[in-house]
């Protein structure tokens, strides 16, 4: 696992590094600490990371402006902040977890655990609280309403997002990563497909145990065999 810490409080950064090292152990391939967002941007141009640990209040800088930019990237974000009153908003922006300062090693372990465990196994339902998704479009970050999303389609390591109005966006996160952020009305129904259940109409079966989920828009999305039983539980 590759982790970048953005924290301007020296002792806090020190504690985060120490605990992260202890929690992840030999799987930790990269751990870097920077003090501000511009340094983080610089680092990210040359390095790939899996997790960003971010302080929302970096000495006068507003956290949400940079958060919108960060959550559009291909890594997951964990907020480590003193301002717990911003937690709800942070989740809406699509962060995996919000760790309040001062924190314990157990709490940090729990946050990091979400990344490794979820999205695999039988859990195919959205596990997050995101209300918006930041997408990078023409070099700028744009926020789209999660409620406007009809379905998601995996495209290599990226993900295509199809909206109600027919427009589509590419997100740098994988389908699996996005399912961690999206709320539970999102369901993964195929290795390469996820849908917003609120935007679906009917589950249709075809000869040869083939199933398709019909969307309100009229589109048909294939349902993977191993995803069928979980989907049935949700739609019946």
């Amino acid at each position: 696992m590759r982790i970048l810490i953005v924290e301007d409080e020296h002792m806090v950064a020190k504690a985060l590094s120490r605990m992260t090292r202890e929690i992840i152990g030999p799987d930790l391939r990269l751990l870097e600490t920077v003090e501000c967002v511009s340094d983080a941007d610089e680092f990210l141009t040359d390095h790939e990371v899996d997790v960003l640990m971010l302080d929302l209040n970096l000495g006068g800088e507003s956290g949400f402006d940079l958060l919108a930019g960060m959550v559009a990237r291909n890594f997951q974000t964990i907020i480590v902040s003193a301002n717990t009153d911003q937690a709800l908003t942070a989740f809406e922006y699509g962060v995996v977890d919000f760790v309040a300062k001062p924190f314990t090693e157990e709490r940090l372990k729990q946050a990091l655990g979400k990344l490794g465990g979820a999205g695999q196994g039988n859990k195919h339902t959205g596990a997050g609280k995101a209300q918006f998704l930041g997408v990078r479009h023409a070099g700028k970050t744009q926020l789209i309403q999660v409620a406007d999303i009809v379905r998601l389609k995996a495209d290599d390591k990226y993900c295509e997002i199809i909206l109600k109005n027919g427009s589509n966006f590419f997100h740098e996160k994988s389908l699996g990563q996005l399912m961690l952020l999206l709320p539970d009305n999102f369901q993964r129904i195929h290795k390469s497909h996820g849908v917003n259940l609120l935007e679906t109409q009917a589950l249709k079966s075809f000869p040869g145990s083939k199933y398709e989920l019909q969307c309100l828009s009229g589109e048909h999305v294939p349902v993977g065999r191993s995803y069928l039983s979980a989907l049935r539980e949700r739609v019946d």
Partner: peptide, 17 residues
């Protein structure tokens, strides 16, 4: 403000260790 007090306490926790 949480920024002052919580960062101070976080640093304190690390120093105590």
């Amino acid at each position: 403000q949480p920024h002052f007090i919580m960062n101070t306490l976080s640093a304190l926790a690390e120093w105590i260790r």
